[in-house]
């Protein structure tokens, strides 16, 4: 089990970074003052991922299209290697995300990285989703029944 100090689980950190708008991430990264001295091992490079659905929603998988995905891998001077994958063609986003993944492998950096980058991004995403859910909820149909006839 990870303690509270361990910050977001790695998978969730990936999810937050993947969902982040590139400009927002770049801005937070610049303002953070975190060390940007990683070396690119791979990429940033853009390719395709074939997307799969399931027949009938829950049956056998089938391919139904592709999406652009950009990935990068970064190595820090201290040796940690970080990776990043996200939909779209955000090259700087991939480089920064991989650097963040590498930095978070240093136990002493996790709290600072999460506070400066991941928490604000996660908060924005949560707020945006909540706003959208509330807008959609207002379009839910409330049926009412009119009684007609004598029975």
């Amino acid at each position: 089990m990870r303690g509270e100090d361990a910050g977001l689980p790695r998978r969730e950190a990936f999810a937050v970074l993947a969902a982040a708008p590139e400009e927002a991430l770049v801005q937070l990264w610049r303002d953070s003052g975190l060390p940007d001295d990683g070396m690119l091992l791979r990429g940033p490079e853009t390719g395709l991922v074939a997307l799969r659905g399931r027949v009938g929603g829950g049956g056998s998988p089938f391919n139904f299209g592709e999406a652009t995905v950009t990935r990068a891998s970064v190595k820090l001077p201290s040796g940690e290697i970080g990776h990043a994958y996200a939909l779209g063609r955000g090259r700087e986003k991939a480089r920064i995300s991989a650097t963040i993944d590498a930095l978070r492998q240093k136990a002493e950096m996790v709290a600072e990285v999460d506070r400066k980058i991941l928490e604000p991004l996660a908060r924005n995403l949560r707020e945006q989703d909540e706003r959208r859910r509330a807008e959609i909820a207002a379009t839910r149909v409330e049926f009412f029944t009119m009684t007609r006839g004598e029975d």
Binding site: L48, V49, A50, R52, R54, D129, I136
Partner: peptide
């Protein structure tokens, strides 16, 4: 354009029951 890009792989099948539903 898509023919110019390498293929990184196949995604896991998406789960439409977990959709953030808009309609």
């Amino acid at each position: 354009y898509r023919t110019t890009l390498p293929r990184f792989g196949y995604s896991r099948p998406l789960d439409t029951a977990k959709m953030l539903v808009e309609r």
